[in-house]
Design a protein around this nucleic acid. Sequence first.
DNA 1: CGCTCACTATTCACCGGGTGAATAGTGGTG
DNA 2: CACCACTATTCACCCGGTGAATAGTGAGCG
Lengths: 181, 181
Amino acid sequence: MSEVSTPHVLLGLLASGGRHGYELKRAYDARLPQARPLAFGQVYATLGRLERDGMVAVTGQERDGGPDRTTYALTDEGRAALDRWLSDVEPPLPYVASTLLAKVVVALLVADVDRARSCLVAQRQAHTARLRELTGVKHAPSATLDDVVAADYAIAHLDADLRWLATTLDRVADWHREVHP
Amino acid sequence: MSEVSTPHVLLGLLASGGRHGYELKRAYDARLPQARPLAFGQVYATLGRLERDGMVAVTGQERDGGPDRTTYALTDEGRAALDRWLSDVEPPLPYVASTLLAKVVVALLVADVDRARSCLVAQRQAHTARLRELTGVKHAPSATLDDVVAADYAIAHLDADLRWLATTLDRVADWHREVHP
DNA sequence: CGCTCACTATTCACCGGGTGAATAGTGGTG
DNA sequence: CACCACTATTCACCCGGTGAATAGTGAGCG
């Protein structure tokens, strides 16, 4: 549910025709501006692994008013892998990968109830602020559907955190008693 | 919001007294059974980095009916870093790190509306199933508060995904039109 | 004319996180 | 005594990610 799979996204961007690294990076920025920023280095490294694994192949090394550039295209295997990725569901993680949760657990372990509680309260404030920010983004006149959908995603999860924070705040005293018997 | 910070968690587990790697791994499993599994190798690697950075120090190399073991303890600097980590709020990510979102974007790019829609529907099913599973975990008689709190966290986020899936399903046609003008 | 600037395009060295297998010593059981 | 399970650590290896370096080209400008 968490880390975006860079290789598959690159395969996706290559599906609409061969491209070289630089183009891919720009396509990524254009299509997924709200996602984790992608460094150039990462593009080439990933392309290298994809080529090694037979997912993409070099289709040309031209130079056209500029530095050399090597164009990559999907292989049949690559297209199949992309297809598989799209049709497979992302299994919801069997474990909970949340710094927030880990931090509260650690706070309960090493400190007292108040410490854990203040940690939760502080977090609630930060989330609330970010929520307001995102609501702004969403309702900005310049917002495209891309932006709105992404903002909605983030908003839904911030909201989930906030609801969890609330119920956990209620439980923190009991929880502390359970951890330190 | 996503990747658990292994180093800080280890510092937290060390706060209640010096321990060696194997003990740390078991403490981790005991205290955070619902979190990302932690491999032994990772414990020692992380301890090595923490030592290099002056966060922990070796306090002994005993052998007590078994193989050698090297005990680590928090340094003052380590305790300070742990304290800082606990009091700092986790900044909600400025970007959206979701495979789910990325996959739908890619599906819209490389395929048609139906493909994107079926991807969303399939995902909805998987989430609903996992939701039922987690509700079971939460209400099991054996559930501790640890389990309940963790389950609630996961449930809140699955619910967030489901709500987002629903509104996105409604928008997918419009969105496709915006992406392919 | 030559200088610098901005853009295109790629490579490199380096780190942290993570996995799986290997190693090695010890105690108990059949 | 052979084997197994447990304790404890190390190793080799990969992926993902960052920041800086390199290198060529065209445009603006004094």
